[in-house]
């Protein structure tokens, strides 16, 4: 997957720009979408609790991989939504939107056989990929940081609520 900074900055840019037109998307909702963008990265929990430990407990083969898929985003977003005391429908929508944006971005990555990872699980196991970038390419991060900085400045001084 692309690194987490690019994932969250993409959602920051999309939601902030959308907020210039849509009154319902205010500053408080942007971090919810950004948190949603981090859901596929929860796959990294495997560094803390190895899959083999869970396989031992469950008694059957297990993989964390679905967390970084459409099915995983929908389920985990549902769980996170239950941690909120208010506006749960909007929280869920933004968490899912953020998570899906990360999955779409990851679906554009390079795969040597021309098919992306299992990001559309359980609907489509390996859709094609346009092979646009590799995750370690710093140019992707630079573009994300520059876009985020531009939108932050435009939001602060031109379009944002401060005006």
């Amino acid at each position: 997957m692309a690194e987490l900074l690019t994932h969250v900055l993409l959602v920051y840019v999309l939601l902030t720009v959308a907020g210039w037109r849509i009154d319902a998307i205010t500053d408080r909702w942007v971090p919810i979408g950004m948190a949603g963008a981090a859901i596929p990265d929860l796959l990294k929990v495997e560094r803390l609790v190895d899959e083999r430990i869970l396989e031992g407990l469950l008694g059957v083969p297990f993989s964390y991989a679905p967390i970084s898929s459409l099915g995983g985003v929908l389920v985990v977003a549902g769980g996170l939504t239950l941690c909120f005391t208010e506006s749960r429908r909007r929280v869920f929508g933004l968490l899912v939107a953020g998570g899906v944006s990360s999955l779409v971005l990851d679906g554009l990555r390079m795969y040597a056989d021309g098919h992306a990872g299992f990001w559309l699980y359980p609907l489509w196991w390996r859709p094609p990929t346009p092979n646009l970038y590799v995750t370690s390419d710093p140019r992707v991060t630079v573009v994300a940081v520059l876009a985020g900085a531009c939108v932050f400045l435009l939001d602060r001084y031109v379009f944002g609520t401060a005006q």
């Binding site: 987490l4 900074l5 690019t6 971090p31 948190a35 981090a38 990265d41 390079m110 995750t135 370690s136």
Partner: peptide, 30 residues
């Protein structure tokens, strides 16, 4: 066909370092 995902071991340090910045950004803004 070969795709170089990480040109060197240091690429992983870059990815994890930048991801940590992303995680902190989300936590602070939230």
């Amino acid at each position: 066909r070969v795709v170089v995902v990480n040109p060197a071991g240091s690429s992983l340090v870059f990815k994890y370092g930048v991801s940590l910045v992303g995680a902190l950004l989300v936590v602070v803004l939230f």
